[in-house]
């Protein structure tokens, strides 16, 4: 169940990044509200995941996979380049998460 909570928390953290970008320094009320609501949901689900994960482990996976998600969405929907440098970073995050799992640390 903790992986499920963490996965949904990642989705809402990606929403936070998108909404915060559109909020333009929190000058636009609707996007500011969307940022805070998404952040609240992401935080609650992260707290449920952290009932099982170590704080450092769960937090690192959450923030990093969300970071990967933001870049991938940018490439899919906003026409941003996905060059070898970014792919290398994405591969490192995936290798790290799989490594944690295989080493029995999570």
């Amino acid at each position: 169940m903790h992986w499920f909570y963490l996965g949904i928390a990642v989705v809402f953290e990606i929403a936070v990044a998108i909404a915060a970008g559109k909020a333009q320094g929190f000058t636009r009320p609707a996007w500011t509200a969307a940022t805070l609501v998404s952040g609240g949901i992401a935080t609650y689900l992260l707290s449920l995941a952290l009932l099982t994960f170590d704080v450092g482990v769960g937090y690192a996976i959450w923030t990093s996979v969300a970071g990967v998600g933001i870049v991938v969405l940018g490439a899919l929907f906003f026409g941003q380049r996905l060059g070898w440098r970014k792919l290398l970073g994405i591969v490192a995050v995936i290798v790290g998460v799989v490594g944690l799992q295989l080493s029995g640390a999570v």
Partner: peptide, 28 residues
């Protein structure tokens, strides 16, 4: 909690990966 060498290693890979990813994003 305990930060075992294995955890520290894989956490380093993950964190280095996301920092590198964001710096590359900025560069590109």
């Amino acid at each position: 909690e305990t930060l075992t060498p294995a955890k520290a290693l894989w956490l380093t890979v993950i964190i280095a990966g996301v920092v590198w990813l964001k710096l590359s994003d900025s560069l590109e």
